[in-house]
Design a protein around this nucleic acid. Structure first.
Length: 571
RNA sequence: GGGCCUGUAGCUCAAUUGGUUAGAGCAGAGCGCUCAUAACGCUUUGGUUGGGGGUUCGAGUCCCUCCGGGCCUACCA
């Protein structure tokens, strides 16, 4: 039994995520976690909301809540949505937790002591009206290059020119519209990543078999231009982990907090500590996942994320772990994803374009989304979400190939033998051949799941379902029942057991449907079918079952058309 | 401007890293079955692998160039 640590990129607290975000990290991470647990491994699956930073504060200001209240409420919303999608986190934490405060400050202190943090003076725009420093992108004004009136302080969206806030003509606060902006000097802490460049470079070189997407992005940041740049890790904000704390190797950082990208990944560790606290465990319980000197030596750590998050996970997070000089568990494999586009364009929060997690659950069960998203995961390049394709895949794969198989077998049995596994007959050559084919397919499925080749795994799973239909067509129990009822009984006995096998192996993809199948079959033994022949003898003759309700209702053309219109967004 | 990824059948994707007649699923066509959510099975029609050039005995795969998508990033490779 192996020990697998799995983390999904942290969704930002601000707002509800769309399907593209879901398929880029949380969903595939859940698939892998469920699969590894099903295979009998010890899994720690961690995710959390990323709660610090200006967007959270501004969102809170809009709703009139305190930022703490806002984050608490939104964390609850996201927790519910995660539950709705059956995401099986061992813990869904919060980057604002006391554990993260402590760990973030611990890392900062260690890095400071190691000479990897330095103080720099810089000038930044301050808004007296708002009572705060403004990040570059929260300053708006007229672009000096093209005259666009709503250019941001970091870049003009119209002509794409990179800007400094002081370049803007008639600058104003994007928060309040205040124009009484002034430039003030402030001090910030910088993480001297450049000093760790060679170490990080060598570490990346040692990784085998990582997706090209992962390593090429890391290499780009390491070697481009002057190489890896030092990055500011503090901001003049109230909400966050205080940069001045007891035992800090610096002074005068009152009123500043660590910047999100510094504290967010540390939350992976902190969330595991939160898990330990909530379950009444001692610190050793989480440290055995994260400290190689305290039991994490045999842990395999796998991260899941969208490509926009790769630099943080290949460089920004490893830098503090290495720089601390302590034996922290480093990631073993980074699975990164491209983007999922929505029907020819991008998902857009501001335009209301695309399907968001809450909307998805309001129109269809989570398994439909899980199946389509995972079987079309954007592994090799950006992918598309065309409604027609979604409808077709779900109807064909889930309703016809799997759902109808369950239906035809259970209903035939009920009408000819009653609602119990039929007795009599024996498995013959045809069944032996089926077992051979199933075994071969199942092994391919496991190979792909082990390698986190999600689309290929989904294709194998579907091929397993097809084998059942082929067998049934070939065996034709509706015919044998007339001439040799005992043979038909054996064929149906095998088919009922096959349904159970499907439920178990499909569980990582479609957990709710699998649970319904198992409940209908009156089985609660989810042991992975290492031996297919044995698994097909699991439910004995006489074992009672019930015919389940329709597992997957089909999506009608009318529904599809209506949703297509509803989620197209308006300009 | 630079770098990276990408363009394969009507649609969504493969192709053991240069090795036979480029494969699946869906959609289309034909046949079969009737247990089943008009579901299932079998057969079958679709590709000058974005265009052009080159290297090679051999190119979807490597090189050059052009065209089209996407991402990242910055006066710098």
């Amino acid at each position: 039994m192996a020990r697998i640590l799995i983390t999904s990129a942290l969704p930002y607290i601000n707002g509800i995520k769309h399907l593209g975000n879901l398929v880029g990290s949380q969903l595939p991470a859940d698939l892998y976690a469920r699969y590894m647990r099903a295979r009998g491994h010890e899994v720690m699956f961690i995710c959390a909301t990323d709660e610090h930073g200006p967007p959270a504060e501004l969102a809170a200001a809009k709703t009139g809540e305190s930022v703490a209240d806002y984050c608490a409420r939104m964390h609850g919303v996201q927790t519910e949505l995660a539950r709705g999608f059956a995401l099986s986190f061992d813990h869904y934490g919060r980057s604002s937790s006391p554990e993260n405060h402590a760990l973030t400050q611990h890392f900062a202190a260690r890095l400071g002591a190691a000479g990897l943090i330095e103080e720099r003076r810089e000038k930044q725009v301050y808004s007296p009206t708002d009572g705060r420093f403004l990040p570059d992108r929260y300053i708006e004004g007229t672009c000096p290059a093209c005259g666009y009136e709503r250019a941001r302080g970091d870049q003009c969206e119209n002509c794409t020119k990179q800007l400094e806030p002081t370049d803007l003509i008639n600058p104003r606060s994007a928060v309040s519209g205040a124009t009484d902006l002034e430039v003030r000097e402030t001090r910030h802490l910088y993480l001297r990543q450049s000093k760790l460049r060679d170490t990080l470079d060598a570490w990346i070189d040692r990784q085998q078999g990582w997706p090209v997407l992962t390593t090429s992005i890391a290499k780009k940041w390491l070697h481009d231009g002057d190489g890896l740049q030092d990055r500011g890790i503090t901001r003049d904000l109230d909400w966050g982990v205080p940069a001045q704390f007891e035992g800090a190797p610096w002074q005068g950082m009152e009123g500043k907090v660590f910047y999100v990208w510094f504290d967010a990944p540390i939350e992976y560790i902190a969330a595991t500590a939160e898990w330990a606290r909530e379950h009444g465990h001692k610190a050793e319980a989480w440290r055995r996942w994260w400290r190689t000197d305290e039991g994490a030596g045999d842990v395999r750590y796998v991260q899941f994320m969208g490509k926009d998050n790769v630099p943080f996970h290949t460089l920004s997070f490893p830098a503090p772990l290495i720089g601390s000089g302590e034996p922290w568990k480093m990631v073993d494999y980074i699975k990164s994803f491209n983007y999922l586009n929505y029907d020819g364009g991008q998902f857009s929060t501001s335009l209301g374009r695309g399907v968001f997690m809450d909307q998805a659950l309001s129109i269809l069960p989570s398994d439909y989304w899980r199946w389509w998203l995972l079987s079309h995961a954007p592994e090799s390049g950006d992918a598309e979400f065309p409604w027609e394709n979604f409808q077709g895949s779900v109807n064909k794969d889930l309703a016809d190939v799997l759902g109808n198989f369950v239906s035809r077998v259970t209903k035939f049995c009920r009408s000819k033998f009653g609602e119990a596994v039929p007795e009599g007959g024996a498995y013959g050559p045809r069944e032996a051949q089926l077992i051979t084919d199933l075994t071969s397919r199942l092994q391919a499925y496991m190979r792909h799941m082990d390698a986190i080749e999600i689309r290929k795994a989904a294709a194998e799973l579907r091929a397993l379902w097809v084998l059942g239909n082929e067998y049934l067509q070939d065996a034709a129990p509706w015919s044998t029942h007339k001439t040799d009822p005992a043979q038909a009984a054996a064929q149906i006995r095998l088919s009922l057991n096959l349904i159970r096998l499907y439920a178990i192996v499909a569980q990582p993809f479609i957990p709710e449907a699998s649970a319904r199948i198992m409940a209908a079959l009156g089985s609660s033994d989810w042991t992975w079918p290492e031996d297919v022949a044995a698994a097909l003898d699991h439910l004995p003759a006489g074992h009672g079952f019930t015919v389940p309700d329709v597992l997957f209702a089909k999506i009608s053309d009318e529904s599809r058309a209506e949703w297509e219109t509803r989620f197209a967004g308006q300009r």
